[in-house]
Structures are given as structure tokens and as C-alpha cells.
Design a protein around this nucleic acid. Sequence first.
DNA 1: CGACAACTTGACGGGCGTCAACCGGAGTGG
DNA 2: CCACTCCGGTTGACGCCCGTCAAGTTGTCG
Lengths: 243, 243
Amino acid sequence: MAADDDDAFGPLFRKLQRLAQIDEADRQAIRDLPFIVRDVRPGEYLVREGERPTSCCVMLAGYACRHKTTGGGGRQIVSFHVPGDILDLQHLLLPHADHNLQAITAGTYACLPIADLRKIAVERTTIGAALWRDTLIDASIFREWVLNVGRRDAKARIAHMICEFATRRAAAGLGGPEQLALPLTQEQIADATGLTAVHVNRMLAVLGAEGLVSRDRRPAQIIDWQGLRRAAGFDPHYLHAAA
Amino acid sequence: MAADDDDAFGPLFRKLQRLAQIDEADRQAIRDLPFIVRDVRPGEYLVREGERPTSCCVMLAGYACRHKTTGGGGRQIVSFHVPGDILDLQHLLLPHADHNLQAITAGTYACLPIADLRKIAVERTTIGAALWRDTLIDASIFREWVLNVGRRDAKARIAHMICEFATRRAAAGLGGPEQLALPLTQEQIADATGLTAVHVNRMLAVLGAEGLVSRDRRPAQIIDWQGLRRAAGFDPHYLHAAA
DNA sequence: CGACAACTTGACGGGCGTCAACCGGAGTGG
DNA sequence: CCACTCCGGTTGACGCCCGTCAAGTTGTCG
């Protein structure tokens, strides 16, 4: 209950608050869990496909992604994550990891034992509802990604990905879309959109020429948020106002 | 508790059994819920994007899909469903539908009130775990679809979709892959894979020429299951042995 | 027999992948 | 301080996979 703990779990509590009406007792129950805080370097793996994780990672700072690969070596990022996100909630009930979890930037994570988390989800129904709701929103975002990768052209696809990233980052309290410095390489954008880095570069040039994003200084920034939304056909209802 | 009810819920109970160790009391609790059984015609909508459903549909017979559309009119199927599947579990905790639910073939559905289902999920923890686990597997399947649509070429993409469909149908107890009569039009396959119907036709011709699927009689059938798996790079671990 | 939906086939074009070269900034070691 | 390396970004040439358009075939149902 020390102020330090509270600060550390701040991003998580803010997120749980958006998901359900958790109260002080719920927060305390989470603080009382045995956990370790871990710093990671850019590119470090938190979980690899096929492993049986025993703890569940909560992002406290930094950015991360989940990705899968085909037999042929194709790599596909399936989601990005911002502070407050619970990264592998699926391991509460699914023993084997079906994808990789990798840090994009340096960051810090709280690792909570899965068994304890499962217990608390049952005993404290509000926390259980928040976590379940989070997995449902997760699934909704994946559905939107299937649509994005399957049915939008390269320009709209990239714009949509950026819009979602900016929106989720804003929801995490890290500042509005206009002040986002996109912490992604063009190759990472390519892996998330099912394109190649070369073509991402070309499309970013187009988005830049249209005055939607800046390309002079790196990392890229959003200049015209409404214009980018229009270019993407971005409608945030699929985020269910809580991601 | 009549034998009729039991028969009707058979596909659901079989699925819940795979998800968690539900017992007779759990089954009885579900039978005791107020529900209605509904027959639908091919193409009929069960839920439309933006609605606030008050009941949750369980498939008892037939096939269905979920799909979304872009502003520009592009349509993307994000999942297929077989008997036993719970179609809109997300509405337990997310009020607004973020996608459409549509019957592919004629079928029958049990509609359970969402409020009752939510209650039973909390009171009977085994049922709650089964339902939560189901949503987690759902999410895993979406992730695989992102990979499929984003990183596989047309032939492998179609083959992979067929492999998943056959596997899930087999898990539902409807017969092995070799005796699947694919109940999908080429346009539906196209909408699920992010391709066009014309190109799906070309790729099915290739898969036929390679002796993997039959094209002489319709609907299409799998001839060489192992070969199709190889062409798809299909590894069912993402289904977590319960979908 | 006509209407209609689904499938089939061919011609053509474009969006995006591939290959390759080059640039620029950050880190590193002499 | 400068050379070297490395990673990420940038640009151009070229080609293929797949979309588009359009016509024709098949099967089904009234």
C-alpha cells in the first residue's frame, strides 16, 4: 500500500478502472500479490511461442508487440501494447503460448503469478469482470486487424494502424494523437500491416505529401489527426472505449 | 431436464466439456435457463453491427460466420462457426456489437438471456472458466487469421482456411476432414481470405490440379488431408485443442 | 423454359513485392 | 578526431500476384 506500489501499478489501475468499477479493496488485493518488476531492453522477448508461462506480464512503461510467424519465415505483428496493458492474459486458462511477446522499446513490466491472478479473478468478481472484458476487447481489436489487413489498401491500412496506436496511447493517458512520436520502425509497421518495409516507406511518403504525417523529423508524427482518420476510415467504436 | 433439452444442448455441452470439467449440476443449471430455440434461413442475420443484443446465440445446427465491413464497402469475414459454438459471448460484457453475425446455411440456435448467462458464469465458476477460456481461444484464432491474411499467399491462405474449418468441424463431432462437404461459396471464401471470388476460383483450380481437393462434384471436398495441411502450413496448436 | 446464383475462363492492368544501390545518423574503436 | 560499421530510411527499376472487367457455362428452382 506504499505510495511507490501505487505509482508503479498506476497505469494498470487506470486501465482496470476503465474496464470495471474496481474499488480500493480490489486495488489492495492486487498490490498484495507477490510480483516482481522487470526492466527489459528493446527487442527483448518476454514470452516465446510454445512456452508455458507461469507469470503474467503487465506493462508499466514502454511499448511492446505480439507476433507470429509462418513456416516460411513471414512475420506478422498481431497487436501493439501501451502501458497498463496486460500482455498475456490468455495464459490464465491456456497453458501454451501461441505467439511471441516482444518489447519494442525499453520498458518495465510487473510479472504476476498466473495462479494468483486466476484466484483473484474468481474471488473478486469485479476484477474478474475487468479482466474478462479486457480479453473481449482484445478479441475485438484482432477482428478489426483482420479487416484492416484483409480489405484495406496499403495507405489506409497504415493510416488505420497509426490511428489505433495513437488512440490507445491517448487512452493510457500518454498524450493526444497530435503529440505522438511513433516509436516504430518502418519494418515493424510493415510486419503489422502485412506489407513490406519498402512499400511502407512509399506510403508514408504519400501520407506526408498529403500533410497527414510529418516526415522531416523522425520519429514520425501526426500532423492532421482528422485527415488521418478520414484516410484510414478509422472508427474507434471497436475499441469499446476502454482499450 | 427432458431428454429433448439434453439432445438440443448436446453440441454445446460437448464443447463446454472440452473447455472445462463441467458436471451434471452445471449442465442442469444451463438447462434451467430461460431460452428460446430459433430456426434461421441461409443468409439471415442474427446480430448486426451497432446493435445492443440482449441474448446470446448458441449454435445447435448449421454454419454461421461473423463479418465486418470497411466504409468503402469491403466485406471481411472474421470467423466461421460450427454447432456448439457460442456466437456472441462478447456481449456478456460489451454492450454494442462491433460486427455482424450471419447464418451461412439453414440452422437452429438457442438464444440465452445475457443477464442470466452472466449470472451463471459468476455463480458456477467452472462454467465461467469454460466461457472465458472459449473467448481466449476465439482470440487466438483471430490472431492466426491476421497472420493468414497478412502473410500467406493466396493458395496457402485458402488451404489454411479450409484446414481450420475441417478441424473445428471434426472437433464438433461432425466427421473427419476427408468427409467434409465445404458449405461455402467461393465468394464467402474470398471474403474470409481477403481475396476476390475470381482469384479463389483460380486457386481452387490449382489445389484441385494438385490432387488436394476435389472440384468435379460440388460442394468441394478434401481429397488429400495431409497434402492440404502441408500446402497451408497448418499447425492446429493455435486452436488449443478445444475449438 | 426462363431466371438467377454460382462457377469458370480469358485478357488486361495495377498495386505491391523484390532487388539493389545509396544516404544519413548513432555508436564504436583506434 | 576520424574511420568504420550498422541499422534504418530512401529511391528507382522491374516484374509478378492478384484485382478488375467481361463473357460464357452450369445447375437449380420456379
